[in-house]
């Protein structure tokens, strides 16, 4: 029942860890997010040191997103062109974000600022998605066909269409300047680096509301982007900080690759707005949990260094 983790230096019940992988992998397949914002705290709860929890989770997400991405690719849900632009932007943004955080840390009081940004961001994104998809679901009941038609065409004209490098994104069915996803990628990368998360839960709403991509393509493309980001993070963490526990990752990914498949299959049965409202509810639940942690006095006032 127990397995010793040679890097984390602790012993875990492997059924629990595989179960965690399965649950978070399911969310990946369903929503196109990595799920790090859920997995890292869960790992810390079972006794994994924070730095190792975060780094190993990235390794696990590689497997879950590869699994989900593979299936979504076959379903024609991955906009690779869009995904590559967002990923490139994300890499650049991540590098900028790391520098910003160094400057903020040196100035002091950064952690408070970061935590507040995180809470506001999660709460804001979650609430917006919740109410938007709730309204859409209500409308949808009355006229499902009209809704589908209304959501499809991207906004034409104005500033965005005057930008150079206008590109047609076939899978998403939109025409957009290549600069737009690049810039949005940078934006998400900066935020993700500052908050110490993968950024899936920001990238997904960005694709839905700013790039106006269809929900199922958002999920497939989100997984594509998460896959490449987490490959980079895993190698960097293993090389520079020695914080990737391969055995822990292995246990997690045994669960998550299957979870991602189940999530993908389940996602096919759900409407885009149903997916959105579910994701919104999870994001809001995480927000509430973080707010409670901030407001209630911790049972222990000491902790090991690391983590976010």
């Amino acid at each position: 029942m127990y397995m010793y983790l040679p890097i984390a230096l602790t012993s875990v019940n492997y059924l629990v860890v595989v179960g965690l992988g399965l649950a978070v992998g399911l969310l990946s397949g369903l929503f196109g997010v990595g799920g790090g914002f859920l997995m890292t705290p869960l790992l810390m709860m079972i006794g994994i040191p924070p730095t190792i929890a975060a780094a190993t989770d990235a390794n696990q997400i590689v497997a879950a997103s590869a699994s989900g991405c593979f299936s979504h690719w076959r379903l024609g849900n991955v906009d690779a062109k869009m995904g590559i632009l967002l990923t490139l932007g994300g890499f650049a943004g991540g590098a900028v974000g790391v520098q910003i955080i160094k400057i903020l840390r040196a100035a002091g009081g950064a952690d408070f600022l970061i935590k507040m940004t995180y809470v506001l961001m999660l709460g804001g994104v979650g609430s917006f998605m919740f109410f938007e998809s709730l309204a859409a679901l209500k409308k949808n009941k009355q006229a499902p066909a009209a809704k589908a038609a209304a959501a499809a065409p991207a906004k034409k004209g104005g500033f965005l269409s005057s930008l150079p490098l206008q590109t047609h994104f076939e899978k998403s069915g939109i025409t957009q300047s290549a600069i737009v996803p690049l810039v949005l990628g940078v934006f998400v990368g900066v935020l993700a680096a500052i908050m110490g998360v993968g950024g899936g839960f920001i990238m997904v709403p960005v694709m839905i509301y700013l790039l106006r991509m269809p929900m199922h393509v958002v999920v497939g493309t989100g997984l594509f982007q998460v896959l490449f980001t987490c490959i980079e993070v895993t190698i960097l963490q293993a090389h520079q900080n020695h914080t990737v526990d391969f055995f822990l990752a292995l246990l997690l990914l045994i669960g998550s690759v299957f979870g991602a498949q189940i999530g993908t299959a389940l996602g096919k049965k759900l409407h885009g707005d149903q997916l959105k409202i579910l994701l919104a509810m999870i994001v809001l639940a995480v927000t509430v949990k973080i707010v409670l942690e901030l407001v209630l006095e911790p049972s222990l006032l000491l902790a090991y260094a690391g983590g976010h």
């Binding site: 497997a63 997103s65 699994s67 690759v257 991602a260 498949q261």
Partner: peptide, 11 residues
């Protein structure tokens, strides 16, 4: 290992 596991299970 992670990528191979992911693709294999997907397949």
């Amino acid at each position: 290992v992670a990528v191979v596991a992911g693709f294999a299970v997907g397949a």
